[in-house]
Amino acid sequence: ARSGTVGQALLSILSRGDLTESDWEEIEETLLLADVGIGPTTELMDTLRTRTKVLGTTDPEVVRGVLREELLALVGPDMDRRLAATPVVGDDGEPHPATVLVVGVNGNGKTTTVAKLARVLVAEGKSVVLGAADTFRAAAADQLETWGSRVGVDVVRSDREGADPAAVAFDAVKQGREAGADSVIVDTAGRLQNKQDLMDELGKIKRVMSRQAPVGEVLLVLDATTGQNGMRQAQVFADVVDISGIVLTKLDGTAKGGIVVTVQRELGVPVKFVGLGEGADDLAPFVPEEFVDALLS
């Protein structure tokens, strides 16, 4: 599903021999269609023209290689993309579970991602506790609980609809700590970044959680279908809860997720995982080379 017609178009342009002006346009369109955005695309095209001029070539293979290289440089091949999932010793000298907070806008795959992460950690032999801090959306805690039983981990939730999400997050970390769990992963309600009250609430969730254990990882979930608004999402969430990694979901569809090129460049926050389906096993590490090849192929 990941090699679309766009990519084939690019391949055929690039194997056509010398590049004409309309070939350049088509290369530009490939990037635009992948949601890379007009700003970064224009910069990339300028770099590409300059570099191929310096190289004195219009050899399609070389041009292709250069574009791939530039994109790779943007998505940062040398970043640490591991999940911070090892228990830590806090300032108090006590052992704490590694805590992960999962955030993002509505419906982009947070709850499913929490389950997938739990699955990965359980497979590594770690003990995991999940916190259902989405107390808002209809049946959100039930959804996480179903996932918890599927992947075999405990879920801390409130049985009261509309309970304080920060309190649930606090309880989850506390119970994880008391049970000697290796990791606690907290699911939060989807929220649009322009809702100030909801963003304040998220800041509070993180602060309250960190009274039990330092929050080791804040993962922003981004839906691969997201267009240019994804950058705004990343900026605002980063301001409020200082995100440490990105999970790019729904990459099993036709969307290429090109918005993360800009996000990673602007914020320097690495994409750590990609979501490739609705099942518990459909999570993979983000591999920059694979991502760029899919973008161009």
Binding site: G4, L33, A34, T225, A255
Partner: peptide
Amino acid sequence: LDAMIGQDAVSTAQA
């Protein structure tokens, strides 16, 4: 359709 969708709107709507 989610108003935040980008270029994929075309393939998805068409599909």
